[in-house]
Computed example of a mutant assay.
Amino acid sequence: MKKIEVLLSSYNGEAYIMEQLNSLISQTHEAWNIRLRDDGSSDRTLEVVEARQTEFSEHIVWEKGANIGVIPSFFELIRQADESADYFSFCDQDDVCLPRKMERAIQSLDTVDPGIPAMVFTSTQLADNDLNLLGLWPDKPLKSPSFYNALVQNIAVGATVTFNRAALQLIRRRMPHMSHVLMHDWWFYLCVSAFGEVLYDPEPSILYRQHGGNAVGGEVSKIAKLKKKWASFRKHRGTHKLVAQAREFHRLYAGELYDAEKLGQLEAFIEPRTTVMQRIRYLKHSKLYRQSKLENLLFRVLVLIGYI
């Protein structure tokens, strides 16, 4: 039976982590273990985990680490992951995994040659703090997942992502500088889409709890979605973080990216554009895209005015 290692980073999660642990115990797939790194919690998170130690026995390995932040914490888990597992799954402390999450992920990834980096992600079932259902998020991608999308947009919700050993090895052999990574799940989407296969399963795999303290959260209404996307662009105004992440990818992987079209689009994206004419010329030849027409229009406007 294929084995999944769950990579769970916790931080002050005593209110929610018990429900998450219960959801892992209730999985229809039975061959799994948890690798938990606590990111310097000041509450009773680890006491809750310790209370379940006997029940989990060999299924859990955990450590209390320094508070380094969500992105470095997940990359530390990636460093520590046990390569004897077949698949690996990101997990957040405050969500609830639906019973067939592991089973369906394995079914998807088993369709890919194990030597090819591969990941699968799903939609989520949004829920409020008490797990009352709110709706599905995000919408099904209008366009296929690809490297040209991953350079400018992340569509893979991290807590739904499961990946194979080849993807783990791809990331581990060239670990990025954390300051250039927008989010661990986005980095996986970028790297795996460059060298392997990104799969999408429309069936939700988690209850994605919305409680105001999420590192990243979902939205149901179109107006809320647009406000969130605009706020994200404004947050990174003048910092060119999309380009910085792409440059970090180029630094690490350009020598291995033998697809000339992908390499050309990457290098065009990271090239400086100091004048309006340079930006117009770039947009004329760019194949990069976001998932909706409105988002694409916003992306092009932001390139023209020098945001990106």
Rank of each mutant, 00 (worst) to 15 (best):
109 L>Y: 10
299 F>P: 03
22 N>K: 07
250 H>Q: 14
222 K>H: 11
150 A>Y: 13
45 T>F: 09
246 A>F: 03
12 N>S: 03
276 V>Y: 15
172 R>P: 12
47 E>G: 09
183 M>W: 11
215 A>I: 12
161 V>L: 14
192 V>N: 10
74 F>W: 06
237 R>G: 01
146 S>D: 10
45 T>I: 08
26 S>P: 04
43 D>A: 02
125 Q>D: 09
153 Q>L: 09
17 I>L: 13
286 S>V: 05
225 K>P: 00
160 T>Y: 11
292 S>M: 03
285 H>L: 09
142 L>C: 07
172 R>C: 09
143 K>A: 14
282 Y>Q: 06
180 H>V: 00
127 A>T: 15
69 G>T: 07
84 S>N: 13
171 I>N: 07
28 T>F: 07
13 G>M: 05
190 L>S: 08
98 L>F: 04
31 A>Q: 15
267 E>L: 10
51 A>C: 02
140 K>R: 14
203 E>G: 00
22 N>V: 05
89 S>H: 14
34 I>K: 02
77 L>E: 09
290 R>H: 08
209 R>S: 08
232 S>W: 13
44 R>F: 07
103 E>N: 05
237 R>T: 04
277 M>Q: 11
150 A>M: 07
14 E>L: 00
158 G>W: 10
253 Y>M: 07
5 E>N: 04
296 N>R: 00
108 S>E: 14
